[in-house]
Each structure stands twice: as C-alpha cells, then as structure tokens.
Design a protein around this nucleic acid. Sequence first.
DNA 1: GGACGTATTGTGAGCGCTAACAATTCGCGC
DNA 2: GCGCGAATTGTTAGCGCTCACAATACGTCC
Lengths: 348, 348
Amino acid sequence: MTRSQLRPPTMADVARQAGVSHQTVSRVLGDHPNVRDETRAKVLRAIEEMGYRRNFSARALATRRTRTLGVVASNTTLYGPASTLFALEEAARAEGYLVSTVSLRRLTVETLSEALDRLSEGGVEGVVAIAPQRSAVEALAELRHPFPVVAVGTGSGAGVPSVNVDQNLGARLATGHLLAAGHRRVWHLAGPEDWQEAVDRVDGWRAALEEADVEPPMLLRGDWSPLSGYRAGQELAGWVGRGLTAVFVANDQMALGVLRALREAGVRTPQDVAVAGFDDIPESEFFAPPLTTVRQDFATVGKRSIALLLDLIEGRTPSGTSQVSIEPQLVVRASTFPYLPQPGAAPG
Amino acid sequence: MTRSQLRPPTMADVARQAGVSHQTVSRVLGDHPNVRDETRAKVLRAIEEMGYRRNFSARALATRRTRTLGVVASNTTLYGPASTLFALEEAARAEGYLVSTVSLRRLTVETLSEALDRLSEGGVEGVVAIAPQRSAVEALAELRHPFPVVAVGTGSGAGVPSVNVDQNLGARLATGHLLAAGHRRVWHLAGPEDWQEAVDRVDGWRAALEEADVEPPMLLRGDWSPLSGYRAGQELAGWVGRGLTAVFVANDQMALGVLRALREAGVRTPQDVAVAGFDDIPESEFFAPPLTTVRQDFATVGKRSIALLLDLIEGRTPSGTSQVSIEPQLVVRASTFPYLPQPGAAPG
DNA sequence: GGACGTATTGTGAGCGCTAACAATTCGCGC
DNA sequence: GCGCGAATTGTTAGCGCTCACAATACGTCC
C-alpha cells in the first residue's frame, strides 16, 4: 500500500515488481499447486506492497463467469420476504456467489420483466424470483431470459422450477389443531386472492374441515395488513355467540388486528374465541395473548433455492420439472390454549 | 430469437447479420445521435432476431465501470434495516445502479472486512454500510478499500461520510411529549450499549429530562427483542406506585414486551403507565394499546445515502467530512394519551 | 553423463466491448 | 461540377484477465 497512482495496479504491474510473468501472478491468486513457495511469497509480497486487487470485469470476461446471482423480490420489509432474502444471500455466499437484488413495490408483468432485464444487464448467471403473486407466476413462465430462474412462493403448479413451503399443509395443521381442541367449526381470514400462498392456505383450511365433515363457514378476506385484520376482526366479533369460536388467520399481522378488534369488542382470546396465525413473526410470541401460528423455515427455502439454481446453471438438472417442497411447523401458544406457553418460556 | 447456439451472439455477430460494423451496433445500443434511422432499424431488427444481449463483463472492462454498488447490512429481517435496504436499492436503481448485498448475522471487524473484500471482488464502485454497532464504525474507519464507503446509522462522530436519522432528537421528542403530558419523570429502557443509536437515544432522553430539571431515573437495558422488553417490563411493573408513570422504550419491539408485562401485572396503559416506543413498525398501530412512537424516514435515508455515495464516486465531494442528518417524527397514539388515535383512524 | 519425466515458469491469443481516430458519404453553395 | 463541412460509418487498439500451450528448470535413474 505504498504508492497511490491514478490507475490501480494491474496484474502486469505486480508481475514486473515481483520479477515474474503475469501468468505466475494469476497462478498464485488462483491457488494453483505448481508454484514454488519462494515465488509465491515474492508475488504475495508485491501484491501486498502495491495494494493490488484482481479486476472483476476482466476476470469475468475471460472466464465467462460473474459468480453473481440475481434476486427479484417484493414487499421486502415484511418478515417473510426479508427472511427469504437473507437466507438466499447467505446460501449464495456460502457457494461463492454474490447476490444482486431488485426490490419491487408491486410485482407485475412489467416490473418483473424490467427487473429481469436489469439483472441480465448486470451479468447475473441466474435469478431467484420471490413471486408469491399468481400473476407473476405466469409472467415468469412466459418471459424470455438468457439464464435459469427459480421461483419461490409461487406454488408448484407453474411450469417453472420452484421452491415452496407447503402452505396447504400449514393450513391443515393450524385448522386441525383447532378442531382437535374441540372447536366445532373454524373460520378463516384469508389473504388476497391473487396470492398463491393465500389460495393454498384456503385450500388447506377447507380440506381440514371437509376431512372432519364440517361445512366451511363464510370466508373473510384481508390484504395481509394489521388494519385489514382489525376490520375483519370487528366483523368476526359480530358472530360470537352464533357459532364462532375459532379463527385461522392467514398471517400473523392480520391476526394481530383480529386480536385487537376482538379485545375491543369484549371478546376474550382464547376463552371465547381461539385465534391461530401463520408465519411466526418474532412479535407473535408477545401478542396479547401469545399467538399460535405456523412457522416456515426460510433458511431451508434459501438453501434449497440456491442449490436448485446452481444445478440449473451448471446444467446438472433439467429445467421445468424441479419442484422442492418444505414442511412448515405448527407452533402452539396461548391464543389457542389458555394453559400453554407464556412468553419467555419458548426460545426468544 | 430464431437461432439458439451454444455461445450467445456477440456484437460482431449482430453486425454481420445487419451488414454494418460492430461499432455501429454499439452506437445504436448506446443511443448515439449520429446513426441513420434506416441503419438503426436494421441493427435493431438483427438484435431482435438473434436475441442479442450486450455482455456485461466486456462492457464493464472497456468502460471501467460496473454500475454496481454494494451494501453491507446486519439484522436485515428487522424492520429498520429491511426498510433501509429497500430504500437504498430503490434509490440506486433510479440512478442506474445495481445493488449487491451482503447480509451479516453479526457485524464485527472480521465479518465487515470480509464483506468489503467480497464486494470488492464483485467489482462494486462503492459501498453503503448499515453499521449501527459502534465497533463496526471504528472498523470502517480503519479498513482499507479501493472504493468510497458511506455509513448509515453510525452516528456522525466517526471519521467516515455518513447518513443518520437524528436519534437524539427523536428521543427528546418522545421524552418531551411524555413530560408535556404531565408526567413528573420518564424512565427509559435502552438498547444495547454498543449500538450508536441506543447511545444517542439515551443521550436525548437525558437531555430532555435535564432541560426539564428532572433527575434521570434508573436506566434499564434490553437487546431490542420483545423478550428483553418483557423482562424489563416485569421489573418496571415493580416500580408502579413508586414514581413510575411513564416509560420511553428505545424500540417498538421491546415496547411490545413491556406492554405485555405491564398488562400481566395488572398495570393499565396509559392510565397507570404511559409507554412510548421508537421506529414505528407497521404493527405498532395495533398493539394493545396503539403505540406512541418515533418514525424514521428510511426512504430519505436511502436516497441521501446513494446521492452521497455517488458524489464520492464521481469525486464531486471530498471524503471524510460529509455528514447528513435526517429529522425523525413523533407519532402520538393511545399508549400515551387515552383519548387519542384508535387503529384505522391513521393511515394503514 | 545423458535421457526422461515432472515441476515450474513464460508466451501468445483471445474474452466482447468501447473510445479514439480515420474514412467515407452526403448536401449544398457558388 | 467542385469544394467544403457535417453527418455517418469503419478501423484499430486496448481494457486486464485466463486458458492453452511452449519453454525451461530440476531431479532421478540407469
């Protein structure tokens, strides 16, 4: 780090300083075996002295590899997408890849297409698309891109390689848990219709009821937000005493709103109405009361997605058929069982 | 998109097909003015036909620009970092840059240094480091890197260009609000000591009290988590009736835990104890009761950070002196004023 | 001591693009 | 019909690296 010149030093500069050829420098940097220790030391010293760093673009051009993956996501401040994003980056890093992200406010054919173009121009070797909206799924299948794409959260129906948590199973776990606790019927506050996850959770809920030979009650819709949950909760409160004793809410944020609306209406949870959520956001354990919910293993989603994408990039796996499914897990807390876990009892 | 060959088509291929020189193709792609319309059309047609896409690495090598920025962050599943990340990417995209992210579990000198190295190898032209831990700040100042770095959340003390929300002001707003509401003293549940933001909030809290000629009560510490807030809340509950009527909690998640502990202890909020938080996470409005808190404008943080970083990259601004400060905003809800906003009244 | 195999180092040719400059074409006035 | 400037197109060098191959050095064995 002695000299500071306008142009950063090149491999040739280092080679000259070390008295070797540029190729030998390349070998040292590439950890090739056939370099004499003495030579290696000489080269490393020169590199250190000059503060040399290998030029990314030149390397990428020569090797035809950028070692960069792209991720397209939306709603990245929500717990689920943020966790998935984190897991993806960590998994990619473990495989020696860098991740370029494009975060969309809204996921439409246009924004998705634009995002893929951008990433393409940015030289990514493949893309993971966190695309829970159904519209996005179709777009993904149709759009042309010069690299493989793995979808996350699209459900397994699309003709695109994808990785998903089994939402249907999660919904059945939650609903089944409420039925097993003795509730005759279980209501459902669903997410937006154009979200595949919302659809799958509705299906799972319905399946669990039908299996128990119960007629599904009226379906309520929210938009994932606490506010929409609050409004639905006010409506639900009107059904207390008329057969409503248990609600399965499609995510924890809406469940928070439901809990609040019920409380305001003088309805006790879980004594009068039991409430279960979905996602297990970190706050759920501290809701009033602590929320029974379904936990998704985002770390595994990230790892499997990257693994699948790299398989596709290396041509190890035929595109189009690969579908990975991951099991969610029921977390039972006081909102469905008064005598169960209090905060602090479960790991924070 | 007619032919599918092993090697993707190059600019020379397109040129041949269009019957022009590769440089003309380059001009068309670069939107140069001096190209005849007819020629441009010919070239565009060839590009379309062959599904040609400009090679990122070659372009970057020739121009010496990757148009990629790096971001180092930690705790990216928390609302604050996630929001900042989102804002940064959006701002960078608006300026024509792609963002590569490295998300750390823990921010230490080693992990930070490693992250910068990775990003450097990834060819970024500059880096934004979301580094709220004080240890990270020192590391940033010392580490050598061949590109400019802008710090976010480090406070303005470090010798590094940085962008910060004025945490001290935010704490004074919250504390002052409680004092103005008639509380004699205001307690404080602080964040971890090694977070600059926690320190600044403590300072602001103290300043507001001193200005009102009030002796600061005992300081409590948490780790930002709801669980730590819950435990602190249990302790606080013991002080009710002995001078405790108001608590300023250093973030909303801990405030959630405090609210829960107080409720369990039979302490009413805000009638017995008023509680204010910090961050304004989306859930705050639906806590029981809705939480008074301090909102940070992450979108502005993102925009200003990217603007500063690009200034540094272009050499428009001398490094080392630039400090940007952004004002936070008090959001008053029912946890400090019983007759104030109910959920649904404020925008969702 | 010479031949042969192996470890080590060097050389030359791209990778696919842009920048600088050279060459050509075109339009127009006289 | 010629000359000139502007518009348009082509040519030539790299950008800094890796890959394939050539060259050299070093041992070892008979």
